[in-house]
């Protein structure tokens, strides 16, 4: 099967360690894929928040490109891109007017577009829990992890048909297969404030603080995410959150791909573990009983 990769803008910049770790992990498991050639931005929140046509037409270009490049399925590791691609596909299937409009824009027919999956589905469907657990090399059993899903992996449930909306478990299954321990906590599907990070920083810091606090209360050593926006809010903003609220515990935030990569013994620098604002290496060194890196 021709599997397509839609990195999205974040993975070429602010979340480049997500891209690097994903590529490393996929190559270790021997998963073949092709990046969609000349992909463009999905429009993200800014498009769907202000313009319906734009929010459908921008992702549609990538769906058309993938189709013409012979891809039957594409994965979008960024939760926002995943959400926009799949929402656009859904709208084009149910709304005739917008379909005609988009077809007219691209002078192309919009049918049999590729399926869109997120990184959790990629792991479950293309790699499998058994494969992850047999390939693990490093003992992560001392690590207690809070799996944070955020919003865009799960909602709208009617369209994504992914995991349970209020208490999802798929990421927990993956990290358990990788040998780590999942903690039970309450904020795994709460919003971090997402794209308000620049326009309403204070709100984002408040929302993210509650998430970090709840992870800490439930004794998590690490938060694992599958969304670049969640990552930057929880990681980049954490220093500031701690500054305003002394007494909070610093918690490193890792991408799911980095954690799986760590378990199967990929070098920390290849996983980009040195690129976070909250440095996870001291914690990993102490918990893994093994020097991961400095």
């Amino acid at each position: 099967m021709n599997l397509g990769y839609y990195p999205g803008c974040s993975l070429t910049g602010t979340a480049k360690e997500y891209d690097a770790s994903l590529r490393e992990v996929l190559s270790s498991f021997g998963i073949q894929f092709n990046e969609i050639n000349d992909w463009s931005c999905c429009g993200a929140t800014s498009a769907h928040a202000t313009n319906y046509l734009l929010s459908i037409a921008l992702p549609a270009r990538n769906l058309l490109l993938a189709k013409h490049q012979g891809m039957e399925e594409i994965f979008a590791p960024c939760a926002a891109c995943f959400n926009r691609l799949i929402s656009s596909k859904h709208e084009l299937e149910i709304n005739k007017n917008i379909k005609l409009k988009v077809e007219d824009l691209y002078t192309d027919k919009f049918d049999s577009s590729p399926e869109v999956i997120n990184v959790v589905q990629l792991f479950l469907q293309h790699i499998g829990l058994k494969e992850i657990s047999t390939k693990k090399k490093i003992d992560l059993s001392n690590l207690k992890i809070a799996c944070y899903y955020g919003c865009l992996l799960l909602r709208p449930r009617q369209i994504l048909e992914f995991d349970d909306n209020e208490d999802p478990q798929m990421m927990e299954e993956i990290i358990t297969a990788a040998g780590a321990k999942a903690v039970k906590w309450d904020f795994k599907t709460e919003c971090c404030g997402a794209s308000h990070t620049i326009a309403n920083t204070e709100i984002v810091e408040n929302l993210s603080r509650k998430i970090i606090e709840n992870a800490a209360v439930n004794k998590a050593d690490l938060i694992v995410v599958a969304c670049p926006m969640c990552h930057s809010n929880l990681d980049m903003r954490q220093k500031n959150i701690l500054k305003h609220n002394p007494g909070h515990k610093e918690i490193p935030v890792l991408y799911l791909t980095q954690l799986v990569g760590l378990a199967i013994g990929i070098d920390y620098s290849k996983l980009g573990l040195n690129l976070h604002f909250i440095n996870p290496l001291p914690l990993l060194n102490s918990k893994l009983k093994k020097e991961v890196g400095t």
Binding site: Q158, N165, H196
Partner: peptide
């Protein structure tokens, strides 16, 4: 101020 998190949409009894 709406973040577009869709918690409302997913919980609405009227869909």
């Amino acid at each position: 101020l709406c973040t577009g998190c869709m918690t409302c949409s997913s919980r609405c009894p009227k869909n």
